[in-house]
């Protein structure tokens, strides 16, 4: 899901940075001082979840879980994802410094979309089977939409990148399936133990 340094063209990088800046500004406005520890620990938890190797076929994938993150954090997913990506860049060397903006948009926009799509549905207290199904949808959509945005950023950088963009999108198909299944189970589990996590407060600016 990460676009590495030095590939995207300057206008795309700048556009990503501006969009991410606006999103982070909105997210920080939605973030109460008192909610900072909770948001930070959830950020750390999602960071750690992303380190787990999930077996798939003969290889393994890393989870992104941006669909679920968005359902819990709403607009504050923007600063949370920026922080997580910054740490991944500094600590693990995924992504890059100049691509922070684009990568933040790629992961946070689907997160905020899944907040608006799925949380109103959770407020109606649905049956567990439906919660699982919507978790699957949120997880898979989070990856699909994110991969689409990333491929779009690659394609916008020039005609030369059309092939790479298509390959990038196709490479995310297996991750989409795994994310869907895991997010489904994860949502159901967290929903049963702590429904207030999704219902407590409006996370909008």
């Amino acid at each position: 899901m990460h676009i590495a340094e030095g590939i995207l063209s300057a206008p795309v990088l700048a556009g990503g940075a501006v969009a991410a800046g606006a999103g982070v500004y909105a997210g920080l406005r939605a973030l109460d001082d008192e909610a900072i520890p909770k948001t930070a620990l959830l950020t750390a938890a999602f960071f750690v979840a992303g380190l787990v190797h999930v077996p798939l076929g003969v290889g393994s994938v890393h989870l992104v879980l941006n669909g679920l993150l968005g359902m819990i954090l709403g607009w504050t997913a923007f600063p949370a994802i920026l922080v997580a990506l910054t740490l991944q860049t500094v600590l693990l060397r995924y992504g890059g410094l100049t691509t922070l903006g684009v990568n933040t948009v790629v992961m946070a926009v689907p997160a905020v979309v899944s907040y608006y799509l799925f949380v109103p549905f959770l407020r109606r207290r649905p049956r567990p089977a439906l919660v699982f199904a919507f978790g699957c949808a949120a997880g898979a959509a989070g990856i699909a939409f994110g991969a689409l945005l990333a491929s779009g950023a690659l394609a916008l950088s020039g005609r030369a990148f059309y092939g790479v963009a298509a390959l990038f999108f196709a490479a995310h198909a297996p991750l989409m399936v795994v994310e869907g299944i895991i997010t489904g189970g994860l949502l159901l589990y967290v929903w049963r133990l702590k429904p207030e996590l999704f219902l407590e407060q409006e996370r909008t600016p």
Binding site: P37, L42, A45, V52, I181, G184, G185, L186, Y189, V190
Partner: peptide, 19 residues
């Protein structure tokens, strides 16, 4: 996948409790 989703769910719930 079932086990991992519960494991990660526990991680999330505990992180919220800790916060």
């Amino acid at each position: 996948y079932h086990t991992l989703s519960r494991l990660l769910g526990m991680l999330l719930v505990r992180s919220v409790d800790r916060s």
